[in-house]
Design a protein around this nucleic acid. Sequence first.
DNA 1: TCAAAAGTGTTATCATTACACCCATGG
DNA 2: CCATGGGTGTAATGATAACACTTTTGA
Lengths: 239, 239
Amino acid sequence: MSFTYKYPRPSVTVDCIIFGLDANQGLKVLLIQRDKAPFAGQWALPGGFVDMDEDLEVAALRELEEETGVRDVFIEQLFTFGTPNRDPRGRVISVAYYALVNLEQHPVQANSDARSVSWYDVNELPTLAFDHRHIFTVGLERLRAKVRYQPIGFALLPPTFTLTQLQNLYETILGLEAAINKRNFRSKILKMGVLEEVGIQKGVAHRPAKLYSFNKQKYEELEKNKYQDLLRRGLDFDI
Amino acid sequence: MSFTYKYPRPSVTVDCIIFGLDANQGLKVLLIQRDKAPFAGQWALPGGFVDMDEDLEVAALRELEEETGVRDVFIEQLFTFGTPNRDPRGRVISVAYYALVNLEQHPVQANSDARSVSWYDVNELPTLAFDHRHIFTVGLERLRAKVRYQPIGFALLPPTFTLTQLQNLYETILGLEAAINKRNFRSKILKMGVLEEVGIQKGVAHRPAKLYSFNKQKYEELEKNKYQDLLRRGLDFDI
DNA sequence: TCAAAAGTGTTATCATTACACCCATGG
DNA sequence: CCATGGGTGTAATGATAACACTTTTGA
């Protein structure tokens, strides 16, 4: 069976950058090893062709699950890459997504297609197929920028976490050399009012930390108010 | 002539939201009137099919110039829209861009294709073809969000402008009801150090205003330092 | 009782907000 | 000489940065 069109058409794929946070080992990205040409044997971002009747985000989630077993994740469109020669097979336009998962809940994945799947440290990537290195870089920059003004980082943590874990998350993602000042971090994050105390650590060999969870509703309320304030009062911008 | 493929392929288009600022009349968007089915006669965002050997952004700039005569503008990828039935002709995936132009330098355009082209107030849009209303909304939200932490607004102004013009720009884009406090706006924007005094107004019936231009180099330097500071010292985030 | 990590008090400095006022020009 | 917008002084309040200290647990 084949398909004929009056004008030439590109192929369209989705590719996913899956970030995972390992409490001790830093920020990771999930890669798969290609089993077919081109770039057979090389590591690549999971992804594949979009079906004709499938929404783009659905395609990204499907490829994610097929290739890595990961599901139920935070996902967001990143950018569309369409430089004419980015794929040796012809014109392929790739809509890239990035996903954030909690590593503890997604340990090294069984490979569904006899492909290997593995977490790599974001600072020690192997050579990647196609322009995936470039896509990855764009994704990491977006994550770093976005984590600073939107509460997406929580998707990388377990549902319940300590303030120290949260602080480590920021230090890891942003690649900070010096630690953030603990006192100030805590004051600031608690003053925002989007964290809820939900318990206390057990069985640690030091003073047990309070456990918090992120209250998304509260956050959305505050965001709305913030915009109302802006409309009422003026500007708080930050060029 | 025709083109045959083993698997079905979607068509790929680019669409552009062109924002323009009119000093007296507020924020505008450039629309074209379609001359062919589907949606013949309806207003739509300028756009069209991507050529097989053409980069996406180049395609967007080409369509922009072909359909509206606008060129040499700030342009940035917005989002890729690919819901299966967004176009009655079949599966069409659209990579949307938004552009910012200075209205005075781009007055109502001659129509290159016997199509009409017209600026519309962003608050008084006609019915738009396809899902262009939705695309527009996403674009306007992005502009409003982005203008607050990146200096993209300057692309909407002439190369040289007064602080009052700049303040009006923010008030207009953000749709602020109350005016921003003049004193505070000025202190803040000047303290940033990205504006350069380049002259003085002539021939106005009031005290002539100083003219400023945006110093992009200075801005990029400051951005770099800001990130250095962040790396050194900690966090200034704003969840 | 010690190591390890959690958690708090306080102050100097800087930024934001809110008002009220003066200045320069053309008609 | 006045209408029109351009432009400035200043003080109360709130946020940030920096440092040193106390608390609670298991081993």
